[in-house]
Design a protein around this nucleic acid. Sequence first.
DNA 1: CTTTGACTTAGACAAGCGCCCAACTTCGTG
DNA 2: CACGAAGTTGGGCGCTTGTCTAAGTCAAAG
Lengths: 211, 211
Amino acid sequence: MARIPVAQRRRDFIDAAVEVIASNGIDGATTRRIAEQANANVAMLHYCYDSKEDLFADVYEFVATRFREVIEQSDPHTTVLETAQAIMRGVMECYYDSPAFGATTLELINWARRQHGDRGIAVYDQAMQVGLEVLRRVAAEEGVAADVVDEIPYVIGTLSDGFAINFLTYGDRAAAKAQMDITASVLDSWLSARLAAGPAKPARRKRAASA
Amino acid sequence: MARIPVAQRRRDFIDAAVEVIASNGIDGATTRRIAEQANANVAMLHYCYDSKEDLFADVYEFVATRFREVIEQSDPHTTVLETAQAIMRGVMECYYDSPAFGATTLELINWARRQHGDRGIAVYDQAMQVGLEVLRRVAAEEGVAADVVDEIPYVIGTLSDGFAINFLTYGDRAAAKAQMDITASVLDSWLSARLAAGPAKPARRKRAASA
DNA sequence: CTTTGACTTAGACAAGCGCCCAACTTCGTG
DNA sequence: CACGAAGTTGGGCGCTTGTCTAAGTCAAAG
């Protein structure tokens, strides 16, 4: 048997955990299943990590880091509208390219919701924060009102999360391509109108223009 | 101890299951926890249900039914735009009024995603289908193109799911109120533009109007 | 070659799981 | 009153879970 240093082993366990969480859920991701996926055994896992919780903490950080990278690398440094579009498309394509990563992210968010401890919300919150920083940088140059910018991460998050749920539930890659376009056009419609309307909220509850 | 007929007991177990699933997840919803929540014990649960799976089937149907009711009762029978708005607001308010129901729904959808069996997707699919039927009825009178109508349930689903994740993760009821308005305005912007543009897709990837 | 420290593993442990059985209580009916 | 059906329960079954212990293997330093 090839002897592998702990550092590499830990990376293997993190990758394995992402895969197992995606297909079995957080609670279904047992130490034995993760170990098997990583071509190891349970004792090996506990040689690298004191507890299952410690491994999951690393998984958590791995997901958060990758999220931050995707958002920052998607930044086109142009207008607010284009930046928002690019970030959302980057996130959606990230899910599309790696469904396991997307599913694990959903699983972690769902797990975060259950236990209202601060640590749980971290992933969700951090992604929002990074997106907000990128957008604020562009908005400052463009002179877009702050309260408009602050709404954008919520809308991007809502749309991309919703896209992820639909795509990962049905698993239809062809349909997902079309839905990415629809989702993009939804953001485009709203943000264009929102930027034109200015700081005041354009939320009309009744009697919206018909015909 | 008061003696309770099985029919009532089953209803109690379903309610208890919704609560336990919401706060412990599908896998964390053990028979013992559900029984305790229903002021009963494990043996009682197995007197009413042959297996845990049988109970969960009833929970599944309970959620699906309530969903259908919310969508149908939200139907204002006016325009496509107003109908779409009303359905989405109805769903979001349903989550807002009963976070446990919302959380359980997310949990079931998430569980459905894991096992790609047809039964799992049923809840998600059925809700989409009911919404589509209601919209098609209105659209026929209004003369709205079919392919436009077919996109609406996806957008409503995406937005309301995204809203649910955010609201249930943070648990901030005040913020949720504002986010419901934002989400409503997003749907309004997109659908208004979509109805005006006609059958052709208005998805512009690059060079969207800037300033 | 020996030693040392890092890597590897089989096996056992308590706790919790879904499920089941036999015995008990309660109540409407003959 | 007696009796059978319906409701109720403590305790135990086999299995899986996370974690740990003790023994074993191997590469490189002395």
